[in-house]
Nucleic acid binder design. Structure first.
Lengths: 133, 133
DNA sequence: ATGATACTTGTACTATAGTGCAATAATGCA
DNA sequence: TGCATTATTGCACTATAGTACAAGTATCAT
């Protein structure tokens, strides 16, 4: 599932979306892996949307995903000098609207719900729970 | 014409195109400014196409343009720590297809046509000259 | 087995980006 | 002034990306 060589254009395209950049920034700064529901609660975006964006990041080789039970944990790929430089740049990006800061704050709070370092719950934000009525 | 704050997403979008990345890579590695016709001869792409791509890079705040007679010289913006990190990453990108290398080679040859450090001629590649018949 | 939970994806829709041709500035030279 | 040269842009066309809803898959608990 790993890419042989990174495709520079694809990587930049992957970062060229507000939602995806929020994900990458969050993971760069937090330095932790995350499952989908934690990202949903951190970014306050619907799961189907984030799931698609995570797929784009994965296909670009920026992210790898690991399934553990019902949860899928995502983390940044850190085996490439180029990507490391990219993350360094992402970490240095200004947070003019405070969005990245808010995402991080919510993420850190959400991490407190883990038990034994593992996520045990689903989406907490009422408005974003899949209303399977 | 300078941007107050850089818009991260816009910058990544600007780099997320093959042609524009070739331009940026060329300028990062060559470390020189360039006019449109020099870029046309280096990348072997039509001038109207490159002109549009240069505009995108300019609007993203990655590039500034300076008019001098009939020529317009373009150079990378280097007043931002973020952009410097980005250039460092671009410089480290693999050149798997050898495209960047070929662009650079042609660019260096093209620079020899300058006199007094200034471009004095237009597009040299016959196939790309605007056929104003 | 049944149902709940965590996540993914088929489909349809809309908006935007990239391209090529042709026309249009803008500048300098004879 | 007229014309060649350097560069930009209006327009039409096509392809692709992002979104939302709803349906689907995979896993676990009871």
């Amino acid at each position: 599932m790993q890419m042989k060589t990174i495709q520079p254009v694809t990587v930049f395209q992957a970062l060229g979306d507000e939602t995806r950049l929020r994900v990458v920034r969050l993971m760069v700064v937090a330095g932790d892996e995350s499952c989908l529901c934690e990202l949903v609660d951190s970014l306050m975006e619907p799961s189907y949307k984030l799931s698609r964006h995570l797929k784009v990041l994965r296909q670009a080789g920026v992210l790898v995903s690991r399934k553990e039970g019902r949860w899928v944990y995502h983390r940044l790929v850190s085996e490439s000098p180029c990507l490391e430089l990219l993350y360094k740049m992402v970490r240095a990006l200004p947070d003019s609207q405070g969005v990245y800061g808010t995402d991080l704050k919510r993420f850190r709070e959400r991490l407190r719900l883990r038990e034994g370092g593992r996520c045990q719950v689903g989406v907490q934000s009422e408005a974003l729970k899949d209303e399977v009525v």
